[in-house]
Amino acid sequence: MKIFRNIFPIAVMATLVFVNCSPEEYDALPDSGNVTSSLIGNWTLRSVIQKDEGAEIKNSPFVTTDLTSIFPYTQYKLTLDGASGASGTYTAVPGASPKIIRSNTGKWEVDDVKNPKTISFINGTDTTKMQIGSYPRSFNSSFKLRQTKVDLATKKVALTYDYEFVKQ
């Protein structure tokens, strides 16, 4: 009887622990189809980071440069118009900032409407292509674009620019 009194509370606790160890249910991941439409809107450039892709392997202390304050990049404004499809029109207003897209107006399009990895800014034969680094979310209304420059002589990436935009 004494043994039963000792074992009973342990058995009850063990039962409660097992019962509470059921799998937790998570909400479904956001519909990736909304990614492209989340890019549509008015954006302002927040930061520009330039990286020398050959510097790290040489243990150089000079791998990146924050260009944001060197030129007035934060004046750069970008508007992406269009429905939730894979393309639309864009308008860039650099202000005193250097241009990051060669043409200030034109058409934008992504490689995959549901899971876009690259966005192209097209004006006639002039295309500026960038990788999409992060999408705007409800908790983070910014997105990142990366421009990669390849050395045609070596076919290797020589440098990259990381642009971060925030919603106006």
Partner: peptide
């Protein structure tokens, strides 16, 4: 050798094109 050697003059990035930001 693949090592960084400090020099009096240095451009960043090491390889630059005509459209790039050059320091």
């Amino acid at each position: 050798p693949l090592i960084f050697t400090p020099t009096l003059f240095r451009n960043f990035p090491a390889k630059v094109g005509v459209e790039d930001v050059i320091t």
